[in-house]
């Protein structure tokens, strides 16, 4: 890169920091390494420490408070009908872009929702409705957590006007710390320690208050965020 960036600038900046901090030459960063290894937690947020049935209630209440809609769905097989119902109810187009996730693409779309046109893949400019899975739901704040990957194109979360998200009850966690724990667990088993390119925490539909502080939904991302909460055994 240009003069002044890259290696010389790196040494210059780190050197300036060390001089300002009066850093000992022998300090190799043991304190930083300890924090990175131990990862101390902050104050515990009590409201999110609940038994499972109340956790579900808290999640629904928090999600609705940020203008999500939530439908309780009995089983994955009932999802196509629940999707079709929602689209019909809100007079939305019947063409659906679904995340290329077998758990979604293998659902009985043809039998249960014959009027829907279902295509899998990333979002294109003309798509107006998307359906994705999710990695977790954080009950503390009604937040959805979605990961990028072959089964989760990030464009589906932002380009269409309406975003439908499938969340299983067993994916609910209380405070955000439990979401970090699940994420680290997943990385340990199948990603060699790295996070996916994108981790999205989504709390309600897109909004702006940039015009006289009046909150408007659908600024650039989805105007509607509909959560299909599927009952299952806590996993």
């Amino acid at each position: 890169m240009s003069a002044g960036t890259g290696k010389p600038a790196r040494g210059q900046i780190l050197g300036a920091i060390r001089r300002s901090l009066k850093r000992d030459a022998g300090d190799g960063g043991a304190e930083a390494d300890r924090r990175l290894a131990e990862r101390p937690q902050g104050p515990a947020v009590q409201r999110a420490r609940l038994p499972r049935p109340q956790l579900v209630e808290l999640f629904v209440q928090k999600a609705e408070a940020v203008q999500c809609s939530v439908a309780r769905v009995e089983s994955p097989e009932a999802l196509p009908e629940a999707v079709a119902d929602y689209l019909k109810q809100h007079n939305l187009p019947s063409a659906l872009r679904v995340a290329p996730d077998p758990e979604l693409t293998d659902l009985p779309w043809k039998d249960k929702a014959p009027l829907l046109t279902v295509a899998a893949g990333r979002a294109e400019a003309e798509d107006s409705v998307s359906l994705t899975g999710s990695f977790a739901g954080v009950a503390e704040s009604g937040t959805l957590m979605l990961l990028s990957g072959p089964e989760g194109p990030t464009t589906l979360n932002f380009l269409p006007e309406t975003h439908l998200v499938v969340l299983r009850e067993s994916q609910l966690v209380g405070p955000i710390e439990e979401a970090w724990a699940r994420l680290r667990e997943r990385q340990k088993t199948d990603r060699g320690g790295s996070l996916p390119r994108t981790v999205n925490f989504i709390t309600g539909p897109s909004r702006t208050g940039d015009i006289e502080q009046k909150i408007q939904l659908g600024a650039h991302g989805p105007r509607r965020l509909h959560i299909l909460l599927v009952a299952d055994e806590p996993g």
Binding site: K62, V66, E140, S141, G142, T143, L195, T198, V199, N200, F201, I202, T203, G204, P205, S206, R207, G221
Partner: peptide, 8 residues
């Protein structure tokens, strides 16, 4: 409580 989008 949380902004709409927190992206890592």
């Amino acid at each position: 409580e949380m902004s709409s989008y927190t992206t890592l």
